[in-house]
């Protein structure tokens, strides 16, 4: 599971109003490099919950990877930024798409329900008594 996927997931346990963001517990993670696509990141940026992403990166062992506040587009997409080592856009790309959580859990912030992540796959299925009525 990439951190971009984590950014979209929420708990839907019965009785939970927001269930977001899910706390990330990481037992095992890995890095898989992929090519940076600035157009893709530009499209994704408005959909991100930045605070959730920062928390997830920190949980995955990268507490200093991202700035606390979301960078301005002008900074992210400045000429040459995509090729500059350590630039904001490269760090964002790394956080969203290259960090994989292989083993761990997603924990509902409201109910404490823990959803396991095994072999990179979260299991978000609810038990019968957890389903919203």
């Amino acid at each position: 599971m990439r951190l971009l996927t984590h950014n979209f997931l929420a708990s839907n346990v019965r009785g939970v109003s927001t269930g977001y963001p899910l706390a990330l517990e990481v037992a095992k993670s890995s890095i898989k490099e992929v090519e940076l696509n600035a157009d893709f990141l530009r499209g994704i940026l408005p959909k991100l919950d930045w605070r959730a992403l920062v928390a997830a990166a920190s949980a995955a062992g990268f507490p200093d990877l991202l700035a606390a506040e979301q960078p301005q587009e002008a900074e992210l997409f400045a000429d040459g930024a995509a090729d500059a080592e350590g630039s904001a856009i490269r760090r964002l790309h790394h956080a969203l798409l290259e960090i994989h959580v292989d083993e761990g859990a997603l924990v509902c912030p409201d109910s404490g329900r823990s959803f396991p992540i095994l072999k990179g796959v979260p299991n978000m299925l609810l038990h019968e008594d957890e389903v919203r009525h």
Binding site: F8, L9, A10, D49, F115, V121, M124, L126
Partner: peptide, 29 residues
């Protein structure tokens, strides 16, 4: 997402972003 873990495992093995869930109750914001 799919409710069948073996099918989701096949997707994950191909490098896709997937999880196990019920389409009637999807865990997205």
């Amino acid at each position: 997402c799919d409710i069948s873990p073996p099918l989701v495992e096949i997707c994950a093995g191909r490098g896709h972003e997937v999880f196990v869930a019920d389409a009637v109750n999807m865990p997205y914001r």
